[in-house]
């Protein structure tokens, strides 16, 4: 299934809970303030990289660009636009938004 996270990992525990809940084979899409987790040097980078062993991690490029951080995306994070967001939703049977 697809997990959507829209919170900065330093603001709320959404990403932590998501990573502990998501099952292997799933996918995580970071949007809105969630994209901060996908940047180098962010304290969430380690756990996100670790999660990549079990699931695919995506980040919404327009949200990265809007925040001036599109040039420091963590290796292994796949960037998508809104069309890619739509594809991720249709490719997975269900999705959960970690609001």
């Amino acid at each position: 299934m697809l997990h959507i996270v829209n919170k900065s990992p330093l603001d709320r525990p959404a990403l932590d809970t998501c990573l502990a809940t998501a099952q292997p084979g799933g996918a995580i899409l970071l949007i809105e303030d969630g994209v901060y987790a996908a940047t180098t040097g962010n304290s969430a980078a380690g756990k996100l990289t670790q999660a990549m062993g079990q699931m695919k991690v995506y980040a919404l490029k327009p949200d990265l660009e809007a925040r001036g951080i599109a040039d420091r995306v963590l290796e292994g994070v796949n960037l998508v636009d809104y069309g890619g967001f739509v594809d991720l939703v249709t490719e997975h049977a269900t999705c959960q938004s970690w609001l």
Partner: peptide
């Protein structure tokens, strides 16, 4: 909140597809 912007851009992209 950005929620409704994200939803709108998502909806528009879905329709375009």
């Amino acid at each position: 909140h950005e929620a409704t912007d994200s939803a709108y851009l998502f909806a528009r992209a879905a329709i375009e597809k």
